[in-house]
Each structure stands twice: as structure tokens, then as C-alpha cells.
Design a protein around this nucleic acid. Structure first.
Lengths: 212, 212, 212, 212
DNA sequence: TATGAATGAGTTTTCATTCAT
DNA sequence: TATGAATGAAAACTCATTCAT
């Protein structure tokens, strides 16, 4: 046990969480600055690690960025997708589940920043954009569209292009996410996600217009 | 008028359109690479101008970026906003006008790339995010919300938060825009903006569900 | 005309010799330190240029190294080879011409340092070693061997492997070159190249042994 | 004596041969890459040892390099030199002995790589160049020259500078060595050392020219 | 007004060396 | 003795900006 006056030890021994810490720090910095403007110096500092240490875990800055974007997917998304695919109840209930899930995810995971990064850096990292499209976005929209198709078969959902319906369902949530990332920090009035979800569901149900 | 045999003067060619050409070139490069990864060399080359010449028109790279983000869309937006504010017809018609306007703008102006840039670089250029919020987004959503309020007063629109309605109306168009910028280039199935607009209007009118 | 008190101008405008100056500086530093230990900083300083300027002319440190090794060949070697190939006199005279040429070249060109570099870095730059082999060494030895063959045909030269004869002829000069580069700087007694050439020719003529 | 079931102790395995193994590994890597480009990581891996372990035996990379250059050849050289100094037979026989010794050494010891390293790194390690000059090269050439002097005294060797004779004797072998290290790996036709030695002896005996 | 070679500060990357275990 | 993750100083490379022309 080190005496209280001991200086900080120069080295911090590897812990199993080291890579996780680095990725978390990197996510924060990349999300804040974007890929090119992020400095490894800052990431290292934030992770409490030397710059060189980053290279023990990731070969280049690009590799680290890829790791950040890729790892952010796995945990929740997978679970979410599974739940949606498995759901077999009536469509209105499906919508409710979906809305609640998305709201929870946007609140508790760094999906917002990641989405922002994909949008901002997609052209420079097309394979990441593709990865996200293939692994996250397309399956998610696919699950939605499939549910729509099932709903239409059951006479619960009006005729119309299921994929477009999916986009309509998802739209306001994306708007809210981007708002939170981009305009809220510069004084944009905050969006009440719960209220938005509620009203969105109502509109999807009945429309926003009063029949003449 | 220069005699036909005059040699092309080395400098001061076409100086009037210079700034426009530069901004156009810069828009293309910034949209492709993002601010930090864009190289003035590339912008200059694309504008058919020397690197030094850029500095005759814009003090720094940041200035140029600001000019791009400010100028590129301003005129169209202004016109669009004016039309929306002036419109006094029934709400359903307002929606139709709005949808058509937005579709036209997304097709004919570089709003897509600009939006992408605002999202990607907003954190590094908060004053630009603020500018866009204050000058473009908020007024636009405000116009929408105001129309909703008028519609509610007339008994055309259901009760509900007008601002959230505005987000709902705008949502699918933003999704489509981001899709076009980010996922279409990596193999995402293209989105038919017209069809989306049509179906979106229908849904806003009647909902997507069939009353039980 | 600048006044005598003017500060040094910050920029030195390009001159046609800029690349030559850089290569000369690089040769000096590479020859001194070897490729890996040479610092671009030092090369730039020696060339009177900023570090960045090097990159205007050569894409990487390796490229610069290649340029150094390649350019050192062209001028004299080519002429020398031409002369040897063209020579059609009797073999003893050929030897004399060759010896004098080689002595002159070793005295007036940076072949010594270059040879040292090829030896030291050949494994890391195999294409350069190959280039030198193909363009310089092999042709030179080939010219020698060809002369030997002609000499043998005329009854001037004893039977024996012409290529090995070529190596024997060249050997002492290489020893002297390496000596100059490696051991003379640390106190090795200098080698009198003229005397060596003379005695070498004598030995090639009569041998060094007195017939019993 | 450890029982057969004892687990291999984690440390202190084979410690006696460690330094030898390390030097051997270092020789291989240094010879391949040169001093500066060689990585301790690679040396450690090749020696089957951790990077830290290198520092238990050698204080720095330079120390290790010195050890390599000093140890690798010392024993053979010493033996060779002793034999030459002791030899008292007639000069032609001396030459034969010398040639055979050198051929054997070049075949069985890493003199080739070491020589390459001395040439390549001599400027960066002048004390090593000096060491080799003082301990290996100069004595060797000295022994040769001394034999020449004795031969001249006995009327076996023509008059002439004994030191230059020494260089002439050694020359082709050095050429062959460098060839093997530098040009053979990139496609240079291999040199038959035995044949070279034979022809070289013949030339030293009678010259390569046929008396007119 | 226009050029583009040149600058130099800033960033990524490497790797000998250290040290907690 | 032995390990190998971690450090940090040094080096290559980039590029916005300047300035002689």
C-alpha cells in the first residue's frame, strides 16, 4: 500500500477495460470535433493514457475511428432489432413498442453522436457508412417495413409503400436526434422526446387533420 | 474593347464571377470532405484559381467555409420562407405547397450537402449552427407551426403541440435528405422523394391506420 | 537592390538548381548517417530550405533517398562505360585507361559515399541495389570482361574466367574506396590511390612473385 | 535437481546461453536492417525473449550493437591472425593458406554481414570502426604485409609496397563478400569463391598477361 | 490582382527505454 | 530474472498561410 505522500505512479498497469476507456474517450472527442479535427493528444489525455499507448491498441487514427463507430452498434441495436423482429402483436402496439424503444435508446446510448459522425464523415469512410447501412439502418427499417406488411395483411394498416411508411415512422425521431446534437447546443429550444413520441403515434393513427 | 490580337491579360480575368466560382468549388469540396479534411489546394484547383487567389477574397479557410454555408442557400430559403409566411389558404393546401416546395429545393439546390455540413461541423462552428438555427431552421419551423395554429383556429387541424406537428411534417424529408447524402452513395436503395411526399401527405391527412 | 541593413528575405524564390541543391544536401547527410538515421531536418538545414520545401520536390524521405542514389549514377558512369566499350586497343593499354578512369572518378565524384550507401542500405532498398547492379556494376564488369575476352582472343590475356578477371581488376579499387569511407576517418593510414593503381597494373602484368 | 513434475520455472530458464542467443538474434536483425532501422522488438522476438529482457544484458541498443560487432567474429579472427603470424613457410604457400582461410571464414562465419554493417554504420559508430580497424583489419593487413616483406627478403616477392600488395591480395575477396551481401540478393550472378581464389592465386603468381 | 514556391507550426506515428508486476 | 504495457521524446509528414515575383 502506497503511503499517502507517494507520487502518482508513472505507469498505470493494463486493465481489461483499457481499450474500452480509449474507445469511450475517442467517441467523445470524435463526436465533438469530427474525425479530422480530433487530436490524438486530446483522446489520449481524456483516456488518461499516453499518446503512444493508443497505438498499442489501434494501428492508426482511422482504425480507432472505425472501432468507435463499429463498437457503438453492437450492444443495444442488436437487442432492439431482435425484439422488433420477434414482435407479433397488432400493429398499433408494435408502433408503441418501437417508439418507446427508440426513445429509450436515444436517451441512454451514444447513438446520437454516432449518427452525427456517420453523417459528417460518411464520405471519408464509405465502408463505415456501408457498415452502418447494412448492419443497423437497413435492418431496422426492414423490421419496420415487415411489420407494416404484416399489418396490411391483417387489415390494420392502410395500403401504401411499406418502406416509405417506415421512413415516416422514423423521421421525427431522427429530426429530434439531430436537433439535440446540432441546434440544442446553440440555443435551439429543447425537444420533449416523450411528447413528440406520443403525438407522433396519435398522428400516425388518425392523421393530424380533422375530416371535413 | 480589346483588340482581337491582344494577348489574354494574365490577371483580372472574369474577376466578377470569381467569388461565386470559388464558393461553388469550396461547397463541393467541403461537402465531400468536411471542413478539416478539405484542402485549399483542391478548392483552388477546382475553382481554376491559384491558392493565393483564395486569400484575395477570403481571409481564412474558416471565412470561406462560413461564406459557403451562408450564401449557398440563403436566396432560396428566403423565397421559400416568404411564400410560406404569405400563404393564407386552408391548411391541407398549405401542406401540399410546403411539400412541393421542399421537394423542389432538395432537388435543385445544394441544401442536402449544406445540411450535412451543418450537422457534421456544427460543433466546430457553433456560430454557423446558430446562424442556421436562427435564420433558416427556426423560422421555417416557425412558419409551419404558425400555419398549424391558424389551422387549429379554423378547425382544420387537431389539437396538439404545433411545434411538434412541424417536426412531424418535416421529419421524412430530412430522413430522405440524409439518406441521399450518406447511404445512397454506399448502396442504400434510393428514395423516391415524390412518392414519399405524396404518401406523407396522405398519412398526415388520415393516419396510416385503419380505424378498427 | 536591397539595402545592406535589410533583413534576410524570408522566402528564397525557386531557382532551377533547387532540386539539385536538395539532392546534394541529402547525399551528404545520407552518406554520413545512413538512410534511417538521417534527419530531414538536417537535410533541409543543409540545403538552406525549410523542411516542408523538401516535400515540394520529393514525396517522402524514401523518394528523396532514391533520387540521391539514382542521380549519382548518370553523369560520369555513362561516359566511362561508353569509353570502355568503345576502346579497341591492346589489352594492357585498356587496363591503363581503366585504372586511370576509375582513379579519377573516385577522386572527383561522390561514388565512394554512394557505394557505401548501397552496401549499407541495399537490404532496405532492394530496388536500388538492383538498379545499381543493372545500370552500373554489371555493365561495368561486363565491359571489363568483354575486353578480357577480346584480349584472350588476341593472345594478350591468359586463359581463365573473364568475369573473375574483372573482379580481380576491380578489387583493389573497391578496397581503397571503402577504406577511404570507413577506416581513413578513424585513423586508418591513407591509401595512395595512384601508387596502388600503378602497382596493381604491374602485378596484373607480371604477377607479384618472382619465378623460381 | 528438479523433480520431473515440477512446472517449468517461469524465469531463469537457460540463462547461461541467453546473451549468446540475443547477440545472434541481434546480428541477424542488424545485418538485415542496419542499426537505426532495426527494432528491439524484432530482436527480442527472434531471440525468444521479452523486450525488457534485452535490458538485463545490454544497457542500450548501442551497447547491444557493439557487442554484436565485437563478439561475432572475434574468435575466428583471432585464430586466423595467429595462424598467419606464426606461418613461416615460403610465400607462395602463405598465399595459399591465406586464401583458403579467408574462403573458409567467409563461408562459415557471419563476417560478411558484419563487414557490411561496419561499412554501413561506421560513420555513426566511429569507435567501432576504429576497433575493427585496430583489432581486425590493420593487424590482418599487417600480417599480410609482414609476410610480403619476408618474401621480398627471401627473393620470393617482387619489390613494391608491401601494404599495397596486401590490399591487392585481399581485394577480390572483399569484392566477393560485398557482392554476396548486396548484389546476389537482387539477382546478381553468384560468384564462385573457390574458383575466384584459385584464379586470383594464379594471377598473383604469374600475372594475367602473356608476355609479348 | 494573381501566382505558387516556400514556410513553419501542428499532427500523426515510431520506438528505445522504463517499470509495475 | 523476466515480462510487456506504458511512456515520451523525436521524427516524418501536412497544409493553411505568406510573400517575392
Amino acid at each position: 500500500m502506497r503511503a499517502m505522500t507517494d507520487p502518482e505512479p508513472k505507469f498505470r498497469r493494463r486493465s481489461a477495460e483499457r481499450p474500452t476507456e480509449i474507445v469511450a474517450a475517442a467517441l467523445a472527442v470524435f463526436a465533438d470535433k469530427g474525425f479530422a479535427a480530433a487530436r490524438l493528444d486530446d483522446i489520449a489525455k481524456r483516456a488518461g493514457v499516453s499518446k503512444g499507448a493508443l497505438y498499442l491498441y489501434y494501428e492508426t487514427k482511422e482504425e480507432l475511428f472505425r472501432a468507435v463507430v463499429r463498437q457503438a452498434v453492437a450492444p443495444n441495436i442488436e437487442r432492439m432489432r431482435g425484439a422488433l423482429d420477434a414482435f407479433r402483436g397488432p400493429f398499433p402496439q408494435f408502433l408503441a413498442v418501437f417508439a418507446q424503444m427508440i426513445a429509450a435508446n436515444l436517451g441512454q446510448t451514444p447513438i446520437g453522436p454516432i449518427v452525427k459522425m456517420i453523417i459528417g464523415e460518411g464520405r471519408n469512410f464509405p465502408e463505415l457508412a456501408r457498415y452502418w447501412h447494412d448492419e443497423v439502418i437497413a435492418p431496422m427499417l426492414g423490421a419496420l417495413a415487415a411489420a407494416v406488411v404484416r399489418g396490411q395483411a391483417r387489415g390494420e394498416v392502410r395500403s401504401g409503400d411499406p418502406r416509405l411508411y417506415a421512413l415516416q415512422v422514423v423521421g421525427p425521431f431522427l429530426v429530434a436526434t439531430i436537433w439535440r446534437e446540432t441546434f440544442a447546443p446553440v440555443g435551439g429550444a429543447p425537444i420533449d422526446m416523450e411528447a413528440l413520441a406520443r403525438q407522433h403515434l396519435a398522428t400516425l393513427t388518425d392523421g393530424m387533420l380533422i375530416a371535413a
